[in-house]
Simulated assay, not measured.
Amino acid sequence: MQKSLPFIAGAAINCYNQHTLRRLIGMGLTRWVLPVELSGQWLSEVLRQAVVADIRHCFETEVFSFGHLPLAWSGRCFTARSENRSKDQCELCCINYPEGRTVSSQDGSQVFVLNGIQTQSGSRYNLVNQLPTMQGIVNIVRLSPQAEGTFDWLARFKANLNGTAPQPLPATDSNGYWLNLAGMLKG
């Protein structure tokens, strides 16, 4: 396949191996965002395969590292629908929910955040303490802006780039997927 416009393959693209990466590179891939459910171990193995296949130099690697994980998207805004508004007359009602609308399990645990057309993880994903394991394999870490405290967390990430300023994770944060655990857990 002939290369066309350069593009970034986001985390929603099911790209789990070097064979898919090679195909996407042939189409113009310049950056690959690791699917959020994959671990650091998985990433290391795929990148090892990419080196063997002589394609590693063709793309950057990005890891979603902070924020509610994007899990699914809908063609219809949940916020507007929950307020019985048509999508053309929503009046941007989502502005009333800057952190989205939460969905809890029967035991009261927050399992999802519904934010516009996105279904997101209930816990905030936080890889601030995994930054040292990303050295040499991850080019970009993505921090999703929060309603409050984004710049504080950005400073914490910068301070801990080399693991010299580990951070206690809030009880509502998780890092399970990166550590090859259930996504809502933290290690």
Rank of each mutant, 00 (worst) to 15 (best):
F151C: 06
A165F: 04
T133D: 15
S121A: 14
Y177C: 07
R142M: 10
V128K: 03
G136H: 04
N180G: 12
R124S: 09
M184H: 14
F151N: 09
S123E: 09
M134H: 06
I117N: 08
P170W: 02
R142L: 08
M134T: 07
G163Q: 11
E148C: 07
Q135H: 12
P170V: 04
D173F: 10
L181E: 15
I117R: 11
G176S: 00
L181S: 05
N162Y: 10
Y177A: 08
A155N: 09
T133A: 15
A159N: 07
Q146R: 08
G136L: 07
K158L: 15
N175L: 05
G116N: 11
D173I: 00
L181D: 11
A155Y: 01
D173A: 13
L181G: 06
G183I: 04
W178K: 02
G163K: 12
T172I: 08
I137N: 04
S123A: 14
L154Q: 10
Y177T: 05
L127C: 10
Q120G: 00
I140P: 00
T172L: 05
N126G: 01
G176C: 06
I117L: 10
N162F: 09
Q130T: 08
S121W: 05
W178A: 15
A147H: 14
W153V: 08
A182W: 03
S144W: 01
S121V: 09
W178T: 05
S123K: 15
S174P: 10
T133E: 15
Q118M: 13
N139W: 04
A165V: 05
L154G: 02
Q146M: 12
N180C: 05
L143D: 02
N126W: 01
F157D: 02
V138D: 07
L131W: 01
A165T: 11
L131R: 02
L161D: 01
S123I: 03
A171W: 04
L181M: 15
N129M: 09
A155S: 12
T133C: 06
G163P: 12
L161F: 07
G183L: 03
L169N: 06
A182N: 10
D152Y: 08
I140F: 02
A182I: 06
T150V: 03
R142C: 06
D152G: 00
V128C: 06
T119K: 14
T172G: 03
A182L: 12
Q146A: 13
P132T: 11
Q130L: 13
P132Y: 10
S123D: 06
A159Y: 01
L154V: 15
L131G: 03
I137E: 06
M184Q: 13
G183K: 04
S144N: 14
Q167Y: 02
I117E: 05
T150M: 01
T133V: 12
M134G: 04
A159I: 01
Q167C: 12
Q120W: 03
